[in-house]
């Protein structure tokens, strides 16, 4: 590849973006109609999801084939790296919005509802019996938002999950080292373990949600504490799911021998993503579960 002239690869044309746009259209249209209880909504949604899956297979397939046939130069590799970094930055900002909501309500608006910071009248006129505390179990309007019986514990499932994810951060690094040294078998074992840890995390989070719904009466509609809990951990869980799928794909690509010890951008991109998900979890553990 290095003996090729310095020509940046520009594909002639591609139908995948158009397929992707059509997929997105049906996906979101189906979702909206589903929310509005339309009888055929789910089918439209599934069609959209299938088109999107088809697009991803085809598009990524094209990119992998181009990469394998040596069409990409060093600059292309750098393009991919820069774009992945900025994509992760956009994800950071997305989580930032939800962390912002958590901090704003905990630090400002919940105490204000209880009369802090010159908000005496808010307190007196709206819900005079309300007292601020966190986790918020007794909501200002208990008739509309019945609070949970108890807050989610920190030293049980959450701690276990922290250990699982931190370990997966180690295993993916070991897999990366094995890849760099060209030790295929070690690579497959460590990468496989990472996938396994991702799956264990997801099962245990599912168990935690079950515990919340059945034993703590903690639901999406139990006020701002459970709102922020479920939305933050839920979006994180969605990212773990996507990350685990990407890890599986790279496992198969490792098995096929797609990556060389120098050229393995896709592997590194997935591991960046995995570390990002890891760091988000640490923040969740500290600010949602612990403090």
């Amino acid at each position: 590849m290095s003996n090729k002239p310095d020509i940046y690869y520009v594909p002639e044309s591609s139908h995948w973006p158009a397929v992707g746009a059509a997929g997105l259209f049906f996906f979101f249209l189906g979702l909206i109609m589903w929310l509005h209880h339309h009888p055929v909504a789910e089918y439209i949604f599934y069609v959209g999801a299938l088109i999107l899956a088809y697009m991803m297979f085809g598009w990524f397939g094209d990119v992998i084939r181009e990469s394998q046939s040596g069409l990409y130069d060093k600059r292309m590799d750098k393009s991919f790296r820069i774009s992945m970094m900025w994509f992760i930055f956009s994800e950071v900002m997305f989580f930032g919005a939800f962390f912002g909501a958590l901090f704003y309500t905990r630090v400002l608006s919940v105490p204000w509802l209880a009369g802090a910071g010159h908000q005496e009248f808010t307190h007196m006129l709206l819900w005079p019996n309300f007292t601020a505390h966190w986790p918020l179990l007794l909501n200002p309007d208990q008739s509309q938002f019945l609070g949970p019986k108890a807050a989610m514990g920190v030293w049980g499932i959450a701690t276990f999950n922290t250990i699982v994810l931190l370990t997966s951060g180690v295993t993916i690094t070991l897999a990366h080292w094995a890849l760099k040294k060209g030790e295929r078998n070690k690579l497959l074992i460590w990468q496989g373990l990472t996938v396994l840890l991702g799956i264990i995390f997801l099962i245990s989070q599912g168990h935690e949600y079950y515990h919340a719904y059945t034993e703590l009466d903690m639901r999406l509609n139990s006020g701002i504490y459970s709102t922020t809990f479920f939305m933050l951990t839920g979006f994180h869980g969605a990212h773990v799911t996507i990350g685990t799928i990407m890890l599986m794909v790279t496992w198969f690509r490792c098995k096929k021998g797609h990556f060389t010890n120098e050229n393995h951008f896709a592997f590194e991109a997935v591991s960046w993503y995995w570390h990002f998900v890891d760091i988000v979890w640490l923040l969740l553990f500290i600010f949602v579960y612990w403090l």
Binding site: L35, A101, Y104, T105, L108, S109, V110, W112, L113, L126, W127, L136, N139, P140, D141, Q144, F145, R219, L220, N221, S222, G223, I224, Y225, T227, F230, M231
Partner: peptide
Amino acid sequence: HFGTAFFEAGGGGDPVM
């Protein structure tokens, strides 16, 4: 659609948020 309380003061949220 799902009863969260981000912007509902009754659930501890805040429309100003």
